[in-house]
Design a protein around this nucleic acid. Structure first.
Length: 442
RNA sequence: GUGAGCGUAGCCGAGUGGUUUAAGGCGCCAGGUUGUGGCCCUGGAGAUCGAGGGUUCGAAUCCCUCCGUUCACCCCA
């Protein structure tokens, strides 16, 4: 025998066993159907891109987290870090796409981070993006999709925070910070909610801002009251800043569209201190955090009007949001939001094998039920009935079918409901419909 | 990337240098019970104590390195 290989998975990466896989598939099925209901089209792109395609798009931190290597042909390549940059690359390559173009993409991405709760090195994003329009209708739709999807999945305590990079940039100018130094200011104000005003004051003054400016900046950021008032105050403060004014106007439009779409105000909020890390955002930005468990954001996104232009002669505006699949799953599991009809296993019934002479009968029965589109597992062995029933119970198969000599003689079968611990004999010809009824299936 | 905690059978977990040839519980296997699971009884299998190295007469227990995991920071889905 050769040396045994220690079985292990890479740090931050996981296997998904069937029970969890069924939950993941349920969540993705829900998202897919909602995305398609909005008219987003399916798309897939390669997991690996040229490194230069991805480099420099995610901010200083992001770049360090890229999985980079050299392929057999000596090409510098990288695993995709998100689904947005590959989309921009694709759009630049496919001028034939009819715009505005809407697509969804559910796929794994990789980031070489230090893993912790809700943070993995390989995780799935479920993105919807709209390419080719500057209209706030697209941004409003993105927020609407977040609202509809999370509600559909049973989320309740969440708020989509909305801000605008244009306003953020205007605030930085207002504070007298050169464009290059803006990142530090963003970082500080993003921490407002987390560390409190005093810590942010210290950090901003550490950046070299005058106490007077810092104080005015924070007054503006700490705006409470309704969204319209927040925007109105911003407009007044940033009166001399054309881009800032435009940012305010964008959010005003966005809010009016959200009203029309019926996204309730309690599920969305203008938050001028919300920043987001990606370098490529140019307009409205979104982030959705759940109040519990403490897991960070389950969704994030924004407008990126200059990203396609990095790959192409012309700038093509785009906006969209991303859902973090494993974070949604983590919430669903922790809050016991898994619906009862999402079973632990796929088999709907176990056809037992009574004894060696009746094996053929069980095989025929299984085939019949499969033809009737019922997920049937036949017991693969000839153990005593008790063990077969036990097997079904342990796996979470809801029903068992038993054919013994008595039933065979009467052309009947026993249908046992494993959770109710009840059973009845029924004519064999009625088995499929009886199963469907027991499973509450049409 | 920085700092801290943890790592004992499939799972939970006792044990912190010497009757440990490593408790206990869940789970698993067999039988009691050869037409039916969840309860009960009896018996059984399963652990290089995360990996490697070191200290010691003696290491699951102390030290070092690595791997994994959790938490915080950072950042984010």
């Amino acid at each position: 025998m050769p040396q045994k290989i220690t079985p292990q998975v890479l740090r931050g990466m996981r296997d998904f066993l069937p029970e969890r896989m069924i939950l993941r598939r349920y969540v993705m099925d829900q998202l897919r159907s909602i995305f398609e209901r909005f008219g987003f089209e399916p798309l897939e792109t390669p997991a690996i891109e040229y490194a230069e395609t991805l480099e420099g798009k995610f901010g200083e931190e992001g770049d360090k987290l890229l999985y980079r290597f050299e392929d057999r042909g000596g090409r510098r390549v990288a695993l995709r870090y998100d689904l947005t940059v590959p989309l921009a690359r694709l759009v630049a390559m496919h001028g034939e796409l009819v715009r505005p173009w809407k697509r969804y993409h559910m796929a794994p991405v990789w980031r070489a981070e230090k893993p912790q709760k809700g943070r993995y090195r390989e995780f799935w994003q479920c993105d919807v993006d709209t390419v080719g329009t500057e209209s706030m209708l697209a941004d409003a739709e993105a927020v609407n999709v977040v609202y509809v999807a999370l509600r559909q999945l049973g989320f309740d305590r969440f708020v989509v925070k909305i801000n605008n990079r244009k306003i953020l940039a205007a605030l930085a100018r207002y504070a007298g910070v050169p464009a290059q130094g803006a990142a530090g200011v963003y970082r500080a104000i993003d921490r407002l909610e987390k560390v409190g005003r005093e810590a942010v004051v210290a950090e901003l003054e550490g950046e070299g801002l005058s106490p007077d400016i810092v104080s005015r900046l924070l007054d503006l950021l700490s705006e409470t009251g309704n969204d319209a008032a927040t925007l109105q105050r911003s407009r007044e403060r940033l009166v001399a800043d054309v881009e800032g004014q435009r940012g305010v106007t964008e959010l005003e439009q966005l809010l009016s569209y959200l009203d029309a779409a019926g996204v309730p105000v309690e599920y969305r909020r203008i938050d001028l201190s919300m920043v987001r890390g990606m370098d490529y955002y140019t307009g409205p930005i979104f982030e959705t955090a759940v109040e519990e468990p403490k897991i960070g954001s389950v969704s994030g996104g924004g407008r990126y009007d200059k990203l396609v232009g990095l790959f192409s002669k012309e700038d093509i505006p785009a906006t969209g949001v991303s859902f973090g699949l494993e974070r949604m799953i983590d919430v669903i599991e922790e809050l016991a939001m898994r619906p009862a009809n999402v079973r632990r296993t796929v088999a709907e019934a176990l056809v037992t094998v009574f004894n060696p002479t009746l094996v053929g009968e069980s095989i025929r029965l299984s085939s019949e039920l499969r033809s009737a589109e019922i997920n049937v597992e036949m017991y693969l062995g000839e153990e005593r009935l008790g063990n077969q029933i036990r097997y079904a119970v342990r796996k979470g198969i809801p029903l068992a079918v038993i054919v013994g000599p008595d039933e065979l003689a009467r052309n009947e079968v026993v249908l046992r409901d494993l959770s109710a611990e009840s059973q009845r004999s029924i004519p064999r010809t009625e088995l499929a419909s009886a199963l469907r009824e027991a499973l509450s299936r049409p």
